[in-house]
Nucleic acid binder design. Structure first.
Lengths: 338, 338
DNA sequence: CTGAAAGCGCTTACAG
DNA sequence: CTGAAAGCGCTTACAG
């Protein structure tokens, strides 16, 4: 039943061509006609049919994000802020956000294929990038615009935001040393993740620079969930020489670590230090509040949207790389208030 | 460049009519023809163009959710789990989820108008229902299928899930009393919210039944954010007779309360009790873990999806109301381990 | 400045 | 069992 352009045209005794052009603001329409068309369309409650417009323009006015199967749940704070940022910026720019949560790897491929093949989205946002990432190859081949958080090793050209944490980790480790911590552990994620490789590298560089040792037995991989962090911490706290500082690949992992350490009965901030990464909103409200390397997740998401939309508009270099430097947020989990 | 039905037809020397019907599984197509069509389509990587199909069928295969302007951020744990549930169930059923985050009330109305007017979505999911809710009237008038979490006072007919916490609050309060707490506070949300009215009612009923008093000065309204909970708690902890137990409208509010109480230096679980509502994943990992009235947010979301899809399929009573009884999760925030 | 017409890629009565 | 044709609601050369 929605009103169509034809009905608006009939009411005004105009052709649908003129109505269409008036609404789109073409300048070859008489000012007065345009005014009338716009007013009447509004009065009648006309909204252009999306499907028709899409079919004609071959554009969906929609950007998609497919959460990787490896993510347990969208429900993690990081994703929440990320999606909020995407949604806000897209809405602002008149686009829509299509979200899917892949359940299995197969299902994930399927989703990409369907969305791209059926023109459901004009572009995509990717995160949790892997060192070799089939998604990047798939989309590049098909020339579908996309932007990513972190870059893979693939040779393709695409805009992205890249986290540069070398200096930040140096600051974090120096801070920990200042507060009397020496015996470091790192709880990371799957080895194929770019962020895992980078963060571990930065930690190694920083420890070398500060002339610290890091026990290989204390460098472990969890799965970016608080449950994973909990289990990993549980285990290493029973070692003969347990760590006195635990660095985590992200805040979510750190939440689980906090829990495990509380259970162990250690005083966080003095007996043991814990640090996360991301600076999620939740990290402010843990007990004690979590020291973390803060990246502006919400703004990163918005920037990624801008990158893709620029690609769509055609006025953008394909190789736009924005660097983000994490900011050390010192909170109670790594230092002792005297 | 995507493959169209025409190209598949040409390759097989068939008409597009036959190809279309073969793919849709009509039974008036020769078995063998059908097999061939399906195989060839797959080989060629054919995916039906969504816009064309939508235009023809007048169906978008998409369900939408517009997060109310009142929600500060999608980034809250509740929304995350909710959206995860919606997304998972929809993907399973071959539908897509369209998400928008309204920024202002105006913008919110606008979004509803656009999505409905332009046929972008076949149905909607609503939450944060108000006692009088214009969204429900708007959608009912236009006969757009929707399902809600909580019911408004409007007379419209629509499927919904309703939380019934009367008994649960009685259990919670009895538990608190058993643990030596008497002086209750409630930090709620805006008065127009159905959940605010209900939860406060249940608390009043329970206190009456248990012959407890509740100081009117300790019944306050925050805004369903942890910051709001933090501020409200900060304030009431300075009262001449502060509460020794704080009930919160949701977990998010409780997170802020925990923070404020930690700052005050009180021992949570013995000196003061704190309880939330929702049973979000995060509530397990606070310090101490948060006692809460747990509702299965993820499953509720999936059920709401099923309700709307049934409405779309035409085989559903419009007045399907499912009741959910919150389950008391006793954790460290309200009791003292001896 | 305005309109008649083609066509985007499908689905679906209708005819054979 | 298969195909020719209409039409979903737009946009956009093209003609006037």
């Amino acid at each position: 039943m929605p009103i169509t352009i034809r009905e608006v045209a009939k009411r005004l005794n105009l052709s649908i061509t003129t109505v269409s052009r008036a609404l789109d603001g073409y300048d070859d329409v008489a000012k007065e006609t345009q005014q009338q068309v716009i007013r009447t369309a509004r009065e009648m409650g006309y909204t252009p049919n999306r499907a028709a417009r899409q079919l004609r323009r071959k554009k969906a006015d929609t950007i998609g994000i497919i959460l990787p199967a490896s993510a347990q749940r969208i429900a993690e704070p990081f994703f929440m802020e990320f999606i909020a940022g995407l949604g806000d910026e897209l809405t602002l720019q008149g686009y829509d956000l299509l979200v899917a949560n892949a359940t299995t790897d197969e299902n994930e491929k399927d989703l990409y294929q369907r969305w791209v093949g059926s023109n459901k989205v004009d572009g995509l946002i990717l995160n949790r990038i892997c060192l070799q990432d089939w998604r990047i190859q798939f989309l590049s081949e098909r020339k579908v615009p996309f932007a990513t958080l972190e870059r893979s090793n693939d040779k393709a050209k695409y805009p992205s935001i890249q986290v540069d944490g070398e200096q930040s980790y140096l600051e974090l480790l120096a801070h920990l040393v200042d507060n009397g911590f020496h015996h470091f552990a790192y709880i990371g994620g799957p080895a194929q993740l770019v962020s895992q490789r980078n963060r571990l590298n930065w930690i190694r560089k920083a420890t070398k620079k500060l002339e610290l040792e890091i026990d290989p037995a204390l460098v472990v991989s969890a799965d970016l969930t608080s449950m994973g962090g909990y289990r990993a911490a549980k285990e290493m706290l029973e070692f003969a020489t347990p760590p006195d500082a635990i660095l985590c690949i992200d805040d979510e992992t750190a939440f689980g670590v906090l829990h495990a350490v509380h259970e162990k009965g250690l005083t966080i901030g003095s007996e043991i230090g814990i640090a996360g990464f991301d600076g999620t909103l939740e990290s402010q409200h843990t007990e004690p509040p979590l020291t973390t390397l803060d990246i502006p997740v919400y703004d990163i998401a918005r920037e990624l949207v801008c990158m893709v939309l620029k690609l769509l508009a055609g006025h953008a270099s394909n190789e736009n790389i924005v660097k983000i430097i994490p900011e050390l947020q010192v909170r109670g989990s790594t230092h002792h208030l005297v």
